[in-house]
Design a protein around this nucleic acid. Sequence first.
DNA 1: ACGTTAAAGCAACTATCTTCGCTTTTGATG
DNA 2: CATCAAAAGCGAAGATAGTTGCTTTAACGT
Lengths: 190, 190
Amino acid sequence: MDDVGAKKRRPGGRSAQVRARVQAAVIELLADSRLEEVTIPRVAERAGVHQATLYRRWGNIAGLVDDIVAERVGELAPIPDTGTLRGDLELAAVRFAEVIAPLGGIMIRAAALATPDADSSVTFHTRATQLQAMLDRAAARGEKAPTLTELLEGITAPLYFHELFFGRPADAEHARTLVDRLLIYVEASR
Amino acid sequence: MDDVGAKKRRPGGRSAQVRARVQAAVIELLADSRLEEVTIPRVAERAGVHQATLYRRWGNIAGLVDDIVAERVGELAPIPDTGTLRGDLELAAVRFAEVIAPLGGIMIRAAALATPDADSSVTFHTRATQLQAMLDRAAARGEKAPTLTELLEGITAPLYFHELFFGRPADAEHARTLVDRLLIYVEASR
DNA sequence: ACGTTAAAGCAACTATCTTCGCTTTTGATG
DNA sequence: CATCAAAAGCGAAGATAGTTGCTTTAACGT
């Protein structure tokens, strides 16, 4: 996997078009069906692509979802340095909320579909490393910073949880509320 | 649903045995298979029960999982009144962690499988009501209490996602840490 | 004990998913 | 613009999942 998004041959070639239509179909189905109703034949039909193509290229639904998630998570990869911990956290939280929102809970479902083996999630590990770097920057500036665990549990977990249990994504305002909460705690506990 | 766990007829009757064997089979499969491999026929085979029985009683995998989760969550139903908010929270958190821990991360997958419509989850709603009552008791005693959302996001969400993020369930000590964190925040923010 | 009833077992049937060999299209290369 | 290779389309065969009417078992009441 060198150039997942654009593909090797051509940006607008047939393969790329198939991929785009298939990804859209998966997201639509994931958004308004129960998980077990999201099948290769149904994705193929909605995308107007032959079943055999999907089986050959992605193998199964999990493969399809992995492909989509890897691409989306890649979009929020570089966490900008705003100069303050609060700025960094708010940006990261809001962007994360925005990315998972339109995916309508597929992030969490993707996690569910993936191999039980947690370490295999390269995507997650990469993300964690980036967040840790953000915290290190804050610490270097002398700010009181939470631990990575506190960050994941205080912000990421609630954002996931929101979608899963309330059936709707958290909005940007709520994301900022979570940051606020975390910082109040950090301030009080150090 | 008056007596979910024990069933109407007999605690050790045939129906109850079937149910127990089926639940065990689901949990085993959920633990060491990819989600899409968890099917009614496979559950039936592992449980030594006829497929038709499962289709008639539970309809599909989601129904099965709902049943299991409802039972497990039901086990921690009555939240004891320890006299202090901290005591109540710690007891509730630790017991919750203990209940979901042996399920080893299947809770997340189970949640993904369960009905997407969150409000329809009677179990969740019941639980939320109980927790709210606990908070009301604390408020009546004049303690500074978190909101229900703060509780769910500060304790329940991290406990659910610990497995997903860190590959292992949260233990009792971590549950208490979460309570600590929440109370520090509440104390500082009011 | 005996009859009643609800749930489980059984087996055949239908529907849906998955695979496979082959043909056709399409994008890159000379 | 002719050729080659990779990927998509096609359709049929095989595997698996889901359904249904009927029979059998067993828990409960009398």
